[in-house]
Amino acid sequence: MLACHDLQIEFNRVPVVRGISLDFPARKITAIIGPSGCGKSTLLRAFNRMHDLTPGARVTGTVTLDGRDIYGKAEDAVLVRRRIGMVFQKPNPFPTMSIFDNVIAGLRLVGVRNRGTLREAAESALMDAALWDEVKDRLKSNPMSLSGGQQQRLCIARALAVDPKVLLMDEPCSALDPIATAKIEELLFRLRERLSVVIVTHNMQQAARVSDYTAFLWMGQLIETGLTEKMFTNPKERTTEDYITGRFG
């Protein structure tokens, strides 16, 4: 299980995430919602150490995966990112690589060289990402020839190829049309059977549709978290109510 405790993130001493403690249950989808600038993407990025290279960034508190502190001295950020994958708002396939090479890029990075293993992993990841049938005959093609939705599923396949425990998704559907969005959402339900998903979204209906748990952030703080059906029918906090019903934000 992914968890953070008293997590604080500052940029040049300006706090953006202020003492958040949150558990992300295994094999469940947790949505993080909140207005722009509330710190949700910053929080998500801390879960696979993306602030390590940001000048002026300071992360305190703990982030653990199955009890191990991912910021521990012995932890290698590359290996952390293998266990905690990430998919971004805009599909970002590597444009100079083929579809096949995109999927196995992560495995190559950690030293896997066996062609058979790589082939198997690519096929499996593409199937898991519900993309195999659409690309199996053009694995050597450039990924930029794919539609936006296909590119996003390719990025998901790339993240899945290294067999992560957690998949972080930062507004993965905001650049997609409703059909491509529906495919990604269906995919999430299948992925939930084997890993945890943490999804940041501005789309309240998407959060309501796909997630088991929802966490609402406001001004860098966790205001409320709980079962999604409860949050969207009868939230405890007035601020949550006002945000999800569009009265502010």
Binding site: T233, N234, P235, I244, T245
Partner: peptide, 9 residues
């Protein structure tokens, strides 16, 4: 409007 929370209720 796809209402939620008090609006939905």
């Amino acid at each position: 409007q796809a209402p939620i929370a008090t609006d939905l209720r």
